[in-house]
Design a protein around this nucleic acid. Sequence first.
DNA 1: AAGGCGCATCCCAAAAATGGTATGATGGCA
DNA 2: TGCCATCATACCATTTTTGGGATGCGCCTT
Lengths: 305, 305
Amino acid sequence: MDFARKLKPHHLKLMVKISETAKLQFAADSIGMSQPAASRTLAEIETDIGAPLFIRSPKGMYPTPIGEAFVRHAQSILSGFETLESEVEGLGRGEMGEVKVGSVTGPAIRCLVPAILEIKKASPDIETTIEVGPSTEMVRRLEQAHFDFIIARLPHDYDSRAFHILPARSEVVSLLVRDTHPLAQESQVSLDDLSCYDWTIQERGSPIRSAIEEAFATNGTKIPSHITNTSSLVVMLGLLERSNTIAPLAEEVANMLTGPATGANLCTLNLDRKIMVSPYFVIMERGKQLSRAAERLLDAVLSRF
Amino acid sequence: MDFARKLKPHHLKLMVKISETAKLQFAADSIGMSQPAASRTLAEIETDIGAPLFIRSPKGMYPTPIGEAFVRHAQSILSGFETLESEVEGLGRGEMGEVKVGSVTGPAIRCLVPAILEIKKASPDIETTIEVGPSTEMVRRLEQAHFDFIIARLPHDYDSRAFHILPARSEVVSLLVRDTHPLAQESQVSLDDLSCYDWTIQERGSPIRSAIEEAFATNGTKIPSHITNTSSLVVMLGLLERSNTIAPLAEEVANMLTGPATGANLCTLNLDRKIMVSPYFVIMERGKQLSRAAERLLDAVLSRF
DNA sequence: AAGGCGCATCCCAAAAATGGTATGATGGCA
DNA sequence: TGCCATCATACCATTTTTGGGATGCGCCTT
């Protein structure tokens, strides 16, 4: 029993080669050893096993049934070693692996999607998972190690020392309307022009909602009284298409929706000021060692900030 | 490159043990070597690879992504060595081989039993081991190389790329009752007729239970309120014999129980629809080399799908 | 601050694996 | 019969591996 103890890939290769070439000399040559060495190696394995693997003939060697089984398994084991090597090397070079990131919508479109496309192009074997959701959820799941890193706002009630926080970027709000909206063609509109329209905004407490409310407040304008609350993009689009509602969205999202790809008949209002929402950050667990793959994605993301 | 050159089964075992125990000392003990030797061995492998496989913490060692990949492949390679050994030994003793399979109940009766009978008839010396249990357990044990292959459902939380998955078959549920059951003679019954009876079903989360609940839900019928939970066939039979309970079982199992062999006074209800449970598959480790005996059984099983 | 736990390192020795050259042995073939 | 191809053996030198024991170092717990 356990004759496998001593078997190194080299030995297995030899056995496979013997069965392929039927000549000890060729087999030995092909893996760079001398014929006597090969002979002895084979003999040792056979005595360990207690049975001959090849029967010798003046024309060469051919396998016994046991030898056949041995070679069959040896091939499989060797291929296991090969995939082990290639996977480990791939991981070492960061060409392979798995990255999980979470993000809020704005940067997901602006940074994450292009970054992922870049990475995938260079290393298609990297497996990426992107989840999009509110900051609080992203942070919570980061803590539970669901993500390598996230792009999100930093909730106040978290100890920021537990995280490693990378450069911030502020988000700008665009006001989206359908292109038949009365104000769509105006070269410039002010907040005062807007308060009498219907608005479709995310729920109270969301960053964009807060930014909008703050903008109206500092301007001294009455906050719009007709507001539909939803964080569902689908609902927003439905309302936008069929009414003159105004929907504030992250600039990146608005650009995507008004761009050529979607073909929707939407446009943004030219507001006379910028409305900024609280900035978002790249957040990761302090001290966590990122995988190479995650590092590469992180670099790609940061270069787009 | 080719760091695998020196790797003997011993080394692979050590790596696997380290990842299992998280303690170098325990790992070393379990394979009969001293802690310093293990430390050095690990260090050597790591420098060969050029990357750490485990990160050290005061509580022990846990694997890096590369380490995980290494261990995963190591397990597979080790299982290759094991089957190599066992097949070679078997052949050396003049035996035909050994097959170990796992299965969930339905196909065990439908496919596996006839297949084994066929194989045994042709080659009585083949030693077969069949274990029956829930899919999750079967898959877990397949990963640990306890089985040559299994017939089971594919749990969602496993990376299906790690396995080789062969054709699927859906299971149909039969509703079993005793032959004196009020509905036994009906030529056709509907779900609505059934919700007022006692049911004996497997625990929540089991595939059959889910299928039943889904059937009632889509039908808009109240789910039976009197349910006895058990996965024990014995208990089920006991209840069936002594009460008007309805027991849903895989069709194959029900057919066997209502067949002439058992002589039990049970029958199946003629439900007006088919209730399907999620399909099962033949699952094996990707790249694993089956023994001849296992191959033959697999062929016999597949021909019965 | 002390003690415990867990891994790393150093030193040393024994064993084994490796490998090469020269040479022997055997069966087939001309 | 004599030669050739093929594997086996003997002998020798070297390298690699393996292992044990003692000890150092870092971190957490008490």
